[in-house]
């Protein structure tokens, strides 16, 4: 800790409290306050693993957001089958003609076997699709979980009991199995069996289904937190001054829930990235030719014995992302909640 630095702006004499330890000796600058958020940020910045992971994660998001720009500068797109323009890219067995999966100054990450698409842009757009869906599903899941959990916890009584049972039921579902079985049903609701399912519908359905099965655990956690907070005296203090319920929820409870909400979100997002990829891999999510991490890994799995390079790019990038995000999540948790440190 920093040594005590008495500041000019806030003299430390505290009237007749001489017996008590004087206020916060180490307050860095004059009137500047050490808000809990600021303290967490300070702790986070000291955590090297966390900072590096954060850079990796940010890199992925920048790539995902800037994918169209990068593709434009690079001069290719993920849909064109470049092998049909230039058959020399693929050999007689439809595998990349060049070494290392056809990597060259033209095709940085090589050429896709059979169709001859550009691996680099396909990966960029794949990351974009997967992250987009995962982020949207995370936001929806967390918002639904927070709303339901806080409401149940704050209202208590019958509402709480009912919500609790619904959560129990949802959590007891084998969700992965259910996704696989249920996704085609969802599509069937909107699209006639023989029609093509538009990509936006696939994406939306994925987001909705992932959130439907995801909110319950967050709601349960927040309900518990609210049950504890609700009894705290500062909530009663707000009630005594006449605070309406909405103000209590938003001004008194929610600011104290940011820690679990952020921690849960950072755990949830990488999990949803892998789930989304898994579903696309099993062709119940996004399907070829839409670029997607899962689709790409599924394609790679078809050719890996002949052309391992094509498998490596989506595989390694995804492992890197998920590991970095999980490490980031750990660091965020340690920073926000130092007591939980193992």
């Amino acid at each position: 800790m920093t040594p005590p630095t008495p500041s000019a702006a806030a003299p430390l004499e505290v009237t007749d409290e001489s017996v008590e330890k004087p206020i916060a000796s180490g307050s860095p600058k004059g009137g500047e306050s050490r808000s809990p958020g600021r303290l967490a940020w300070k702790r986070f910045k000291r955590d090297r693993t966390g900072v590096i992971s954060a850079y990796v994660v940010i890199f992925f998001f920048v790539v995902a957001i800037a994918a169209p720009l990068i593709a434009k500068l690079y001069g290719k797109d993920p849909y064109t089958t470049y092998a049909s323009q230039d058959p020399s890219l693929l050999d007689a067995f439809s595998y990349p003609a060049g070494p290392n999966g056809g990597m060259s100054s033209q095709f940085w990450f090589g050429v896709e076997p059979q169709l001859g698409r550009d691996v680099f842009t396909f990966l960029l757009y794949g990351i974009r699709t997967s992250l987009g869906i995962a982020v949207a599903a995370t936001i929806l899941t967390v918002v639904a979980g927070v709303v339901v959990g806080v409401t149940a916890g704050y209202l208590g009584g019958k509402t709480d009991y009912l919500v609790g049972r619904v959560i129990d039921i949802l959590l007891s579902f084998p969700s992965t199995l259910f996704f696989i079985a249920f996704m085609p049903v969802v599509y069937g609701i909107f699209v006639a069996p023989d029609d093509n399912i538009p990509t936006w519908l696939r994406a939306t359905a994925l987001i909705v289904v992932l959130s439907t099965f995801g909110w319950a655990s967050i709601a349960r956690l927040l309900r518990g937190q609210v049950l504890g907070l609700r009894e705290r005296e500062f909530v009663e203090a707000a009630k005594v001054t006449g605070a309406p319920p909405m103000r209590i929820v938003f001004k008194e409870l929610l600011p104290n829930l940011w820690t679990p909400i952020i921690i849960q979100s950072t755990l949830l997002l990488p999990a949803l990235v892998t789930t989304e990829a898994g579903l696309s891999f099993l062709s119940v999510g996004i399907i070829d030719p839409t670029p997607d991490w899962g689709v790409m890994i599924a394609r790679g799995a078809q050719f890996y014995s002949q052309d391992i390079t094509f498998m490596l790019f989506p595989g390694i990038s995804m492992v890197l992302f998920v590991v970095a995000f999980n490490l980031l999540g750990d660091s965020v948790r340690d920073a926000l909640d130092p007591k939980s440190k193992r």
Partner: peptide
């Protein structure tokens, strides 16, 4: 009996007696 300059501080920066004064 608290310092008015402590307006922007957070509760965790105060001792029990000072907190009770805030109350």
């Amino acid at each position: 009996g608290l310092n008015p300059e402590h307006y922007n501080r957070f509760p965790h920066e105060f001792s029990g007696g000072q907190r009770q004064r805030i109350g």
